[in-house]
Structure formats: C-alpha cells, structure tokens
Simulated assay, not measured.
Amino acid sequence: MTTLDVTNLIMKRIGERWTYRLLSALSDGELRFAELLRALAPVKAKVLSETLFRLESDGFVRRRIVDARPPQVKYQLTQLGRDMVGLMNSIARWASAHGDLVLSLANQASRELTP
C-alpha cells in the first residue's frame, strides 16, 4: 500500500460522521458504552458499536473489559488516538478560521456555474 493509499484510508476514517465526536468524547477519559451513547446523542447504538469497532481495529481506541457484576466494557483512547485528536483539533481550528471564506467561495463558484 502506498503512502497515498494509507492517507486516503485515514482521511476516510476520520471523515466519518461520528469519528471526531467520539474521539473528542474519549479525550476526557475512559467511558462506558452507555456514557458514549448519551454524549453522542442522537447516534444509534448500532452505529456507535460499528464506529467503535472500526476505531479499535485501526488502533485509535482500546476496549477494556472490567471484571464487575455485571461485567462492564470501557473505552479509552490509545496514544495513536490521542495524537489523532490533536490533529483533528488543529483541523477544527483551521475550519473555524477559514470556513466562512471557503463557503463563500464555494457559493460563488456554484452561482457562476448555474445558467
């Protein structure tokens, strides 16, 4: 796999609807599934479960089973996940600073293309 392929794969993953919110929620510390579900409302449990599975598979999130009655599952960021949150926060700051200009230019281009 080329560097470009890997970059595209990562950009696709971080661009998914719930990824940034989920990683941001976990940046404050370890959370249980139900806590994440509340923090990310209105995400559906199935979507949250699938997103957590992908992020765990990619190495951004660690799943930990707590020996309790009933058993608990907690999620936390890995170092890779913490690094990604830092990068995503930088992108969010850039979007906040430049978003109005980007939207304005996109709207202008759209008007110019419309007959």
Rank of each mutant, 00 (worst) to 15 (best):
A41G: 02
T51Q: 08
L48C: 03
L80Y: 11
M84I: 02
E35C: 01
Y75R: 00
K46T: 13
V43I: 15
R38A: 12
S90K: 12
R32K: 12
L55R: 07
V47G: 00
D67S: 09
L55E: 08
S24H: 10
V66Y: 06
L55M: 06
G59S: 14
V73C: 11
Q72A: 09
K74M: 13
R54N: 11
L37T: 02
G29K: 06
R69L: 09
F60H: 14
G59I: 13
R54I: 06
Q72C: 00
L55A: 04
D100W: 01
G59T: 12
S57Q: 14
E56M: 01
P42R: 03
E56S: 11
G59F: 10
D58A: 14
V47Q: 07
E30F: 00
Q79N: 12
S24G: 04
L23A: 13
R63S: 13
L26R: 01
A39E: 06
V73R: 10
S104L: 11
S90I: 02
S104I: 05
Q72I: 08
G81A: 09
S104N: 07
G99Q: 13
F60N: 09
L40V: 06
A41L: 04
M88Y: 10
L23V: 10
D100E: 13
R93Q: 14
A41Y: 08
V73K: 07
M88T: 07
R32N: 03
R32D: 02
F33E: 15
R62A: 12
T51D: 04
V47Y: 01
D83I: 02
V73F: 00
A97Q: 14
D28T: 08
A41F: 03
S90H: 05
E35Q: 15
A68L: 05
E56R: 13
A97C: 05
K46Y: 08
V73Y: 02
V66K: 11
Q72K: 12
L103F: 10
